[in-house]
Design a protein around this nucleic acid. Structure first.
Length: 846
DNA sequence: GCAAGGTC
């Protein structure tokens, strides 16, 4: 037996650091090996992986999509190879000398598989070192020491269950994705994908859209009356709104009147009445329990109601976690671990500016019993603050807002229930044949309980005065509202994630990514997401030939099979063989269908980008992308027809259902995050620009002296407006102007530039005009602001927060330096970015 | 270049 150091392997660096800290009593020191952190103390080493450091894939000879028939992938061999070379070689180096290995990956199925992957890497270089497995569900002193005192063995069955999932997902996903892409001749970046999780998620969205389209609205009416309680010695007059109701055939209360004549008859009675008698008053006290601790899904939902997309919420949570302010953000658990001491954690907030008062009031409670949700898992604790507090200046505004949400959610889970007093009043109005009933429901928060520390949940009250049975109220106003039943609402991102969770598809760590993937593939657009024609075609084709790939049943079945493998009642081979046979049958059906699937997909792809009829040749006008990466509208008959229309330079075009009455072309919306706007009919925009004469306002600072150039307010055919030189294109001097509002030239002049000051006036009368001033001075101020706020990289469409960070790391600080950068050099330094992408950004930035 | 699952 070798006497080398003990090697502890965790799933991530963060866990490695904290476990080393606990086991060493704080004496562990970090050392870098191969660019990977290794924590060292006594005879021990601890290294963190980065999730899976090996991946499954087909051998390289299957890489060419055209050379390999998709059906061949079903029985193709599958290799496992390192995907994180530096971590793998650091691990090998340490494992060679180790005298004992302890696998301390996360306590869930995927953690067991990651542990087994580490085990296999260890075995490659060290045949007989003993390998143990420890399991703990939160990294606390108690749990970790306990786990290391009682080591267990790796569960190879559980790991095999995970591998089974990897194989089935790869085979089905790759074979069907390639088949659909090839049949639709979509082989570039715009391939057509399907998979066990994205399939059912997309079908969810498409099915909802189908319901909305099939929806037949129905008319109904509702009646309301304002009732007033007369003033008395102790109180002023008080009025409140009551709604008409009746008992339907089943004896249930109903408010909607489905027949117009009935509604009008009832309204006549109501309108002609000046008083109503209180028939009954009912008071009830209701307790409103505080919410359960945050798991990932509920966190995303709460952040969603603050306006954060699922993707953004997770990215912020990730940052807060890495900085040490909140616990691990990917968890299913809604039950705090036993060793979480609410008082200790509250103490950490006591005395702080933002949270001190609330923490103290919670600490004043006699006993503190945190709430618990339905899910108790072994993966990680629910998301809560760690007790290490950031100061305001450590965080961006968004980060602070999300941090405060997590803190306050923790506060809410240890706070008391709220108490509401409900007051229900029924009054009647006398009619000729029959009396009408009116009801009002009042709600008063008597004990705010957790609402005092958690302002995110609805605590609004509705007022109904204290009335008594038999009291007479005045009818001061009445209304008859004609309404229509509404179609079901589209799924928002957080509803989608909640629904995926309830269907059992995806995981806490992937559901938000899946939604992002659907956007990236061109399957959904806008927010809440709407499916494209392509998405419908993909779902339709799948429903017909590969129903499993769009059904949640595939996951349910896989889950059962994995449980059988875990129990030892089935094997990886049995389950994957059976799955491959089913996929063979799917392919038989697809082959028989001939070209139909491909044609349908191609038609839908084209429909997604067809704007309307070409005014010159009658062909189809479609959205195209120029070589420089900008979008424009061109004729499908190109090169026979060269008709084009420009589009704005910011954002990605989305065609709306609405069409232009004059030209019959679809209206265009430009999607650009917060800068999204409706462009409208592209032909109208072009014509408006053609009709409007340039308005000269003064000398061009670049070329007036030499060539007599002058500045003019111009409208471009793409819809944008600018102040530019009349000698364009010989002189390219230009200043941007806002897209919206009428531009007024005022009497005031800027002496420095000899230009009039401009004012922007809006159609919306409530909106104050904007005194933009001299266009040159204004642009200078704008640029100064941009450079002060740090980076403006994210203003280029296609560059998100993460990419901007990576660019800055590569020395590209702002748009100016991006424009001057060498595309190949940037591409070399930034992961996942090619030179063409850089050129595309440069073109857009211009 | 395909999936889904880890993690950054």
């Amino acid at each position: 037996m070798s006497q080398g150091p003990e090697l502890i392997i965790t799933e991530k660096d963060n866990a490695a650091r904290r476990i080393a800290d606990i086991l060493s009593g704080g004496s562990a020191e970090a050392d870098r090996k191969n660019g990977v952190n290794v924590y060292k103390w006594g005879g021990k080493r601890c290294i963190g992986l980065s999730g899976h450091v090996v991946g499954v894939d087909f051998p390289p000879e299957y890489n060419d999509w055209r050379d390999v028939e998709p059906v061949e992938l079903i029985d193709a061999p599958i290799d496992k190879h390192p995907t994180q070379e530096n971590i793998v070689s650091a691990l090998r180096l340490l494992a060679r000398r180790a005298g004992r290995v302890v696998i301390a990956t996360d306590y869930d199925r995927e953690g067991e598989l990651i542990g087994k992957e580490a085990y296999e890497l260890v075995r490659e270089v060290n045949e007989d070192v003993p390998v143990d497995r420890v399991r703990f569900s939160s990294i606390t002193e108690n749990e970790v020491t306990e786990a290391f005192a009682n080591p267990d063995e790796l569960d190879f069955n559980l790991a095999a269950a995970g591998e089974t999932r990897q194989i089935i997902d790869l085979v089905w996903g790759a074979a069907l994705t390639r088949y659909l892409s090839l049949s639709a001749r979509q082989l570039g970046d715009d391939f057509i994908s399907v998979g066990r999780v994205q399939g059912p998620t997309l079908k969810l969205i498409v099915d909802r859209e189908r319901e909305i389209e099939a929806f037949d609205p129905e008319d109904y009416w509702e009646l309301f009356a304002d009732l007033e309680k007369a003033a008395s010695e102790d109180a002023d007059a008080a009025s409140f709104e009551a709604q008409y109701f009746y008992l339907d055939e089943d004896g249930n209360e109903a408010e909607r009147v489905w027949d117009e004549d009935d509604a009008e008859r009832a309204y006549e009675t109501l309108e002609s009445s000046s008083t109503a008698d209180v028939e009954s008053v009912r008071r009830r006290t209701r307790t409103d329990d505080p919410p359960a601790p945050f798991n990932t899904t509920q966190f995303i939902r709460a952040a969603g109601s603050l306006g954060y997309s699922a993707q953004r919420a997770m990215s912020i949570a990730e940052d807060l976690y890495t900085a040490g302010y909140v616990t691990y953000p990917r968890t299913d658990n809604t039950v705090y671990p036993d060793d979480l001491e609410p008082r200790d954690l509250l103490d950490a907030f006591s005395g702080t500016r933002t949270f001190g008062d609330d923490a103290d009031s919670l600490l004043d409670q006699e006993d503190i019993e945190p709430t618990a949700g339905d899910e108790e898992t072994t993966d990680h604790p629910p998301i809560h603050p760690t007790g290490e507090l950031p100061s305001h200046s450590d965080l961006s505004e968004d980060e602070w807002e999300v941090y405060e949400l997590v803190v306050r959610r923790f506060f809410a889970t240890v706070a008391e229930s709220a108490t509401w007093e409900h007051l229900r009043v029924v009054a009647s109005v006398a009619g000729d044949d029959e009396d009408l009933s009116l009801k009002a429901n009042g709600k008063r928060l008597v004990e705010p309980g957790y609402h005092a520390v958690y302002p995110y949940s609805n605590a609004s009250e509705s007022f109904v005065p204290d009335v008594t049975e038999g009291e007479e109220l005045a009818v001061t106003d009445t209304s008859l509202d004609a309404k229509q039943t509404q179609p079901p609402r589209r799924y928002g991102q957080s509803r989608l994630i909640e629904t995926m969770e309830s269907m059992g598809i995806g995981t806490k760590a992937t559901r938000h990514d899946v939604i992002q993937k659907l956007y990236d593939r061109g399957y959904i657009e806008s927010d809440p997401p709407r499916p494209t024609r392509l998405a419908r075609a993909v779902v339709e084709a799948s429903e017909e030939f590969a129903e499993r790939i769009v059904s949640e049943e595939m996951t349910a079945q896989l889950e059962q099979d994995m449980q059988a493998i875990t129990r030892g009642d089935a094997t990886l081979e049995e389950v994957t063989d059976e799955s491959r046979e089913i996929l063979e049958e799917v392919f038989e059906g697809l082959m028989e269908s001939g070209e139909d699937v491909g044609e349908h997909l191609q038609k839908s792809l084209k429909a997604d980008k067809t704007v309307g009829e070409c005014p010159e040749c009658g062909g189809d006008l479609v959205i195209r992308k120029s070589r420089r990466g900008s979008y424009f509208i061109g004729c499908d008959a190109y090169p026979d027809c060269t008709y084009t229309l420009p589009l704005p330079s910011t954002g990605k075009p989305l065609l709306l259902e609405e069409t232009c009455e004059e030209h019959g072309l679809a209206h265009v919306k430009m999607l650009a995050g917060r800068k999204t706007f409706v462009h409208g009919c592209p032909l109208c925009k072009a014509e408006e620009a053609d009709e409007q004469e340039d308005l000269v306002i003064g000398p061009c600072p670049d070329c007036h002296e030499e060539h007599g150039g002058e500045l003019a307010i111009k409208r471009l055919r793409s819809g944008s407006r600018l102040v530019g030189c009349t000698r364009y294109p010989d002189c390219e001097y230009s200043l941007p102007l806002p897209r919206r509002g009428d531009i007024e030239v005022t009497e005031e002049t800027c002496e420095e530039h000899d230009l009039p000051e401009l004012r922007i006036v809006y159609d919306d009368e409530d909106r104050e005009p904007w005194d933009l001033g001299c266009p040159i001075c204004n642009y200078r101020e704008y640029q100064a602001e941009q450079s002060e706020s740090g980076s403006d990289l994210e203003s280029v469409s296609g560059i998100g927060e993460k990419t901007a960070e990576k660019l800055k790391d590569a020395g590209v600080e702002n748009v100016e330096s991006l424009k001057e950068a060498e595309p190949d050099a940037v591409a070399d330094q930034v992961d996942g970015v090619g030179p063409d992408t850089v050129r595309e950004w440069q073109a857009k930035a211009d």
